[in-house]
Design a binder for these strands. Sequence first.
DNA 1: ACATTAATTGTGT
DNA 2: ACACAATTAATGT
Length: 211
Amino acid sequence: MKSRLKEIFPDFQEEGLIEEIAKHGIIKPFKKGEEFLRPGKFINSIPLVLEGIIKISKKDNFDNEVILYYLKKGETCAHNLHCCMVNEVSQINAEAETDVTLLFIPLEFLDKWSTEYVSWKRFVLKTFKNKFDQLLQVIDEIAFNNIDYRLINYLNEKQKIAKDNIIKTTHQDIAIDLNSSREVISRLLKKIEHQGKIKLGRGKIELINLM
DNA sequence: ACATTAATTGTGT
DNA sequence: ACACAATTAATGT
């Protein structure tokens, strides 16, 4: 058991930590599709994934499910950790995506280990950081996909200010205003031009049929 | 009118 | 994102 833990969680350094996990952890297998965590349920332990994939999701007020993330071997759930530490009820669903083997750590050990074992504390922080990084990535993607619309809006605003249908500006200046790069703006503008909405010239953009 | 140069825009990787 | 090519406007001779 201990060697298996070391293999799956190479981050755990202290021998004592490994022993405590092996001693107090409760192994539970789940079949594919089983749901083992529901919103509103009190959480008295957190699962370390030994084998398989679990899906963490959140049901919104209507009826659709938003997948937050998947956990694989060697990981644990950031939401779960947080809920345990502040004694709140779960906001999320957890479901076995494949057959899984989980090792449940009773919540009373979390605070204790955090102060006793540096590598456990690092593991917890790393779990939070990973989820945070994922969020940042999503934000980036959303921002990127919105550049089309932001560019159109930008041109409209300029038109209002200019009273004229000819905007005098360079691609570079637009890129700076929209936190983008000049090449991206150039290519987007060209697409819009091909749609007949604008006409491009050096240092100016003539609005034909915007909106 | 022509050449030179700088700024702007286009394109491939 | 970067590097380079191509185009255009501006300026000097």
